[in-house]
Design a protein around this nucleic acid. Structure first.
Lengths: 198, 198
DNA sequence: CTTGTTTTATGATTTTAATCATAAAACAGA
DNA sequence: TCTGTTTTATGATTAAAATCATAAAACAAG
């Protein structure tokens, strides 16, 4: 996350996206740095037969889509607003200038990329070798730390739909529903009128 | 990759690792920056019942294990020498000093992390939604660009064992063997006395 | 050279999550 | 408030990769 004043100093402009509106599409070349002011952005892929895989979900103050920007490569996924969102857009050239002139920002970017790489590493290992209960639980526990899950009286409210959990873990909805039920039966999490708590 | 002279200026020391020797272990806190001078390093996890997942394989001039170093988090995987290797080790504090005093190095690090994140994103989507042939082929094509596969007269030699391909894609050896056979039958790659070419 | 280990290979069987079918509850929009 | 859509739910069936078993070829180490 880069301070808004700094971004604006380099010419960043605020843009609004309605729910379901596309921010950028897989296959396109990056043109901007994106940082969320408010709302929720989902990055995902669709495979050959239309099945979705969610790369990540991003919230207030988070940036997304930098890797291809640094590499001059096409976006490997789509970005779409899940909720109405306001985003600061900084054109690539200005962003690079900002980086050069602000070494501390580089460190921030490094830490951010490192964090995301860490998550991907953990989830990749989970997804390839572990059974559904393990995968779902790992995602939930990661979400508590890094997504904006809020602590309530019954525990942390897991603010994802079963479908989203499936698309993040590579499982099908029915499997996620059954897995969550099984985890509840084991007392590992709670379901209170369809909402999941941990 | 950081220039060797620069690393040495900040106190990096060369260390040799025999084949199968451990460089660092999952769960430990990072203490150094690692850059390979020669040899081959594998980063991998083992799940509850001993099944391996390979996070990545690294070669000459590549660095590895930075994310936890930047985040002060435990290593999410083990690093082990697959071939005898020589590695430059730079203590964390010196490495941070190097970064502060050399802004161009920061940019290099960013590009490197971005590259790895890009690979993980692509493979995560593959692994979660695509069938074996697609997964294996994607890994091979990535390897041609980013691992040190050499072009020979029959095409690029895929310098991985079937087991390694399995551990990189989350498939079992037998499945990989059958998948590669199927891809050969379709003429997508060649098998010449057990070696795979693309 | 001999021997132990790794790698590739193949067939048979099993397991597990995906798929298919169907529906109620909840929610969102007109 | 009616209606269409999304989300959660459950049972039955299927398909696909994992597992199990076994072995030959290749390689590595002594």
């Amino acid at each position: 996350m880069i301070a808004i004043e700094v971004l604006e100093k380099y010419g960043a402009l605020k843009k609004s996206f309605d729910k379901s509106e596309i921010v950028f599409e897989q296959g396109n070349l990056p043109t901007h740095y994106y940082q969320i002011i408010s709302g929720e952005i989902k990055m995902s892929n669709y495979n050959d037969d239309g099945r979705e895989f969610i790369q990540g979900i991003f919230y207030k103050d988070q940036s997304f889509g930098e890797p291809p920007l640094f590499l001059n490569q096409k976006y490997p996924a789509n970005a779409i607003a899940v909720e109405n969102a306001e985003i600061l857009l900084l054109p690539k050239n200005n962003f690079m200038k900002l980086l050069e002139e602000n070494p501390t920002v580089s460190i921030k970017i490094i830490e951010n990329l490192a964090q995301r790489l860490y998550y991907k590493s953990v989830m990749a290992a989970e997804m390839s070798t572990q059974e559904p209960e393990h995968r779902v639980l790992k995602l939930i526990d990661h979400g508590i730390v890094y997504f904006n899950f809020k602590k309530e009286e019954n525990g942390y409210l897991i603010n994802f739909t079963r479908q989203q959990i499936g698309d993040l873990t590579g499982l099908r909805v029915e499997t996620v529903i059954r897995t969550i039920k099984a985890l509840e039966k084991k007392g590992i999490l709670k379901i209170i009128n369809r909402k999941v708590y941990r």
